[in-house]
Structure formats: C-alpha cells, structure tokens
C-alpha cells in the first residue's frame, strides 16, 4: 500500500524473523559439516560445501511449501506466512551457492563454455536412471531465480497479479525437478542418506498437508445456505460473528466477508487487492478492515482504501430479520457505498 515502493518492507517483527532465519541457516551449515566429518572424515571440503548448501536449500523449500497449508489449518502460522518471501529469497541464494559451486567445480575448469559443459558432459538424455541430473537442477534454479527476483511488490503490480501468481505456482515444477535432481544424483553417485530420507518424508508431509487443507476448503465451500423469497441468502445469526471480526461465506462461488463493528454490519468481497489475502480473517482496526497478510486497509461501508490509497473491493448488501443476517448475492461495483446494517439493541 503506498505511493512509492520501499526497499524491503521491514518492521521490528520481520527483522526478528530474518535474524532467526539467518542464524538457523548458519547453525544448520555448521551442524551439517560437523556431523558429516564425524561420520565420514574422508569427505572433501568441496563435496561438503556442495552437500551442505544443496540439502539446506531443500530443507528451506519444504518449509516454504508447508507454510501455506499449515496457516490455513491453524492461524498461528500466519506470521510465518507473511515472512515467506524472505525465506524464498534465502532459499534461492542457498541453491545458487550450491549450483554455482557445482558449475565451477565440475564445468568451469575445461575450455568449453560452462553451461555447454553442464548440458553435454553427460549426454544420456534417453536413459531414465542415468539422465543428466545436474540439468534438472539447472532448470529448477532458473525457476527459483525468476521467483526470487520478482518477489518485490513492484512485480506483483506490473506483471499483473495473474502472471505473477502463475510464475510463482512454478514452485511446484521446481520441486518436482529438484526431487528428480536429488534421486537421480543419488543413483549416479552416492548421496548422503540424510538427504534422501529427508526428501522422502518431506514429500509425504508436503503432499498430505496440501490434500488436507484443500479438503477442508472444499468443505467450507459447500456450506449450504438457505434462500428467502427475494433470493437473499440466509448466512448466520448476529451472535455467530465476534465484534470487529468477520465470518466468511461462499456465495455463488465467491467468498464474502461479513463484518460486525460498532453495532453495524457490512459485507465485502473476501479477496484483498494486494495479494489476495483473506480479508475476513482480518480485524477491524481504526475503523478499517485490515488484511491479515500485509495490512492493507479498506473501509467496511464502501470497500475503499482510505485516501490517498486507491484500492477498492466489491461490496454487498445485507439485511437483518430477527437476528438472522441475509445477504444479497449480487455484488456491487468495487468501491460502491452501502449503508451499513444497524443492529438493534434488544
């Protein structure tokens, strides 16, 4: 939200998270080195660097992949979700050190071009088990680069949210490529059993968390809502919504957040204009709906961000009949003023 861009949106909490990320990464690298040298003292320093950074990159990637579903299942994980971008960039840098080091180590010493050497040193492209696994790592690294380098809000806006979202969905392709990279690598030269074990368990965890959370979402989406004579939909009673909070309903495939504040009710489209955060999981702060993801704000009665900001979300009409809230499923234009529904004191 803003008329200019900041270098990085840092605040006290984010700085703390970033410190924790960097310290944990260092700790991991040191532990990895110590454990490897204790169990296999003949490991060369080059192999050690390659493996330490490669395995740290996949550990970070797994954390990134589970945060999404975890924070949908339990809102306590939300703060980590806000910080996912920095984790993503850290992961890319870690993977870049690993890949860059491998390129220098194995491909830069001859007199052919480094990348040409990467693609041609093993030409078994028709084989399954002997497929050049480093090429898979290279493509994964390209995707991670595209994601990390466009993580700034500037790109979200200027590539358009759709393109940006598609680009960032490629993380799953990168994940698949990396799984191929590590398993084929293990097949062709010995890989540490730790990495293979981690990847197998990790795959199961990532897969099942995604399944569970999408199953939950599907259940919310099916919630049946009764209609009244004019086609207004019955959503819930007043007491089911807490003060300064909302409940989210799916109405004709759109999620709508119904807010209760100052003895009034207002409804807006649930999707934040910034990155699609769930507005209905946020709170009313200073009279504004405040997105739980990065704090964009909207006025509940017209869905507009307070000036000088210009974001707008769609609004909906509500009515109250004996403590039961009804909603008109037809959305108004984004930013349309709707008189809030007053709650009578009984």
């Amino acid at each position: 939200m803003g008329l200019n861009y900041q270098f990085v949106l840092w605040n006290k909490h984010k700085k703390m998270y970033d410190k924790i990320i960097v310290l944990s990464m260092l700790l991991y690298l040191i532990l990895f080195a110590v454990v490897t040298l204790v169990f296999n003292s003949e490991t060369s320093i080059e192999t050690l660097i390659l493996r330490a950074f490669g395995s740290l990159a996949i550990v970070l990637l797994h954390i990134i992949l589970v945060i999404g579903p975890l924070s949908r299942l339990n809102t306590n994980f939300l703060p980590i979700l806000y910080n996912r971008r920095h984790l993503g960039v850290s992961m890319f840098i870690t993977a870049l050190i690993h890949g860059g080091f491998a390129l220098i180590q194995f491909h830069a010493l001859g007199n052919t071009n480094v990348f040409y050497s990467l693609f041609t040193s093993n030409l078994d492209y028709n084989s399954f088990t002997n497929f050049p696994f480093q090429v898979l790592g290279f493509f994964a690294l390209l995707i991670l680069f595209a994601m990390a380098s466009t993580s700034h809000d500037f790109f979200l806006k200027n590539l358009s949210p759709t393109v940006w979202k598609r680009l960032h969905m490629l993380v799953y392709l990168a994940y698949a490529l990396i799984i191929g990279h590590v398993f084929l690598g293990a097949f062709q030269q010995e890989t540490s059993p730790f990495t293979i074990g981690f990847l197998s368990v990790g795959f199961i965890v990532v897969g099942s968390l995604h399944l569970i959370s999408s199953f939950r979402e599907a259940k919310i989406d099916k919630s049946i809502i009764d209609k009244d004579a004019q086609g207004w939909l019955k959503v819930c009673t007043i007491d089911e919504i807490d003060d300064d909070r909302a409940k989210i309903f799916t109405v004709q495939n759109e999620r709508i957040a119904v807010f209760k504040y100052d003895g009034k009710l207002s409804a807006v489209h649930n999707v934040c204009k910034h990155q699609g955060g769930p507005l209905g999981e946020g709170k009313i702060i200073d009279g504004c709906i405040t997105c739980p993801w990065h704090g964009y704000q909207y006025l509940p009665h017209n869905g507009q961000s307070p000036p000088p900001f210009t974001e707008k979300v769609a609004t909906y009409e509500l009515k109250l009949l004996e403590n039961i809230i009804y909603i008109n499923p037809k959305a108004f234009e984004e930013g349309t003023e709707v008189e809030p529904t007053q709650i009578q004191k009984t």
């Binding site: 861009y5 380098s149 700034h152 590539l159 358009s160």
Partner: peptide, 27 residues
C-alpha cells in the same frame, strides 16, 4: 513502467534489476 517509481528511492531500482532481466517480455 510504473509512475510510483518517481517517488521511490533510486536504490530500489538495483534491487529490481534481476527481476527485470527475468521478466522483460511482460514489462
């Protein structure tokens, strides 16, 4: 490309540089 860049510190452009290289056809 983006009028907001007028009021943005110049250093931010360097931070955006790699992403511009990656996504220039869209911009």
């Amino acid at each position: 490309i983006d009028p907001f860049m007028k009021e943005t510190k110049k250093g931010v452009r360097l931070l955006l540089f790699p992403g511009i290289v990656a996504t220039w056809p869209f911009l």
